[in-house]
Design a protein around this nucleic acid. Structure first.
Length: 207
DNA sequence: CACCAGGCAAGTA
DNA sequence: TACTTGCATGGT
């Protein structure tokens, strides 16, 4: 909790998630898998230009054409299939309405999302937290790296272990989870690359 | 030129 | 369960 306070003072609110609609956040969550957000923005812009950034738009477009539009986001063939899987799920279970997912129970909905081929834990939790305002902590590579280097979690801790550690030590607060994860990514991008050493870090010394 | 980015699934042992 | 590999563009 003190880590969070210090980071928030250092960097201020990050204003996550960038996206105008529930559906745009969901699409962004899939497109950003192991990919720089800057590249995702190009893909999102292509979809917007074609008026396809909505459930029926992505449902109706042929997968090959979708792949071409999202090419800048990388892994475009894989991600086109994953987006297709996701919108298919939307229509089969929620009448194609992204906002109706919020009506479901959190743990049930999480299991439904994880059952979609192409949606793993981080993507599911990003959708739950940032698109649907559900209280769940999004763990990413930066979060693991930062917490393990500060000896707060073991180096090889699993996704669920890290998530449990954080949620057990923080109040169950959507706004807090939202901002905390955004700050983790900002801190990671600014100071901690995928190297064993690390620039001087604003949370050093905070237990 | 090499390395990395807001992962995931499928195959192998 | 715990590794390994393929997927791909664009920035530094």
């Amino acid at each position: 909790m003190r880590i969070y306070g210090r980071l928030l003072r250092c960097f201020g609110p990050r204003g996550w998630w960038p996206g105008d609609t529930t559906f745009e956040v969901m699409v962004g969550a899939i497109l950003t898998q192991n990919t720089a957000w800057q590249n995702v923005e190009k893909a999102i812009a292509n979809l917007k230009d074609k008026g396809l950034l909505n459930p029926s738009g992505l449902y109706l477009i042929p997968e090959r054409e979708l792949a071409e539009l999202i090419r800048p986001a990388g892994y475009f063939n894989v991600k086109a299939r994953r987006l297709k899987n996701f919108v298919k799920f939307l229509f089969e279970h929620y009448d194609g309405d992204p906002d109706r997912l919020a009506e479901s129970n959190l743990s049930d909905l999480r299991q439904e999302l994880l059952a979609i081929n192409g949606v793993g834990p981080e993507t599911a939790d990003s959708i739950l937290l940032y698109a649907l305002n559900k209280p769940i902590f999004v763990v990413d590579a930066y979060t693991k790296r930062i917490f393990s280097r500060h000896n707060l979690i073991p180096v090889g801790a699993s996704y669920s272990e890290v998530q449990a550690f954080l949620m057990d030590n923080l109040p169950r607060d959507v706004a807090l989870y939202n901002e905390f994860h955004a700050l983790m990514v900002h801190l990671g991008k600014t100071f901690c690359k995928a190297k064993p050493d690390c620039e001087p870090c604003p949370i050093k010394g905070v237990g």
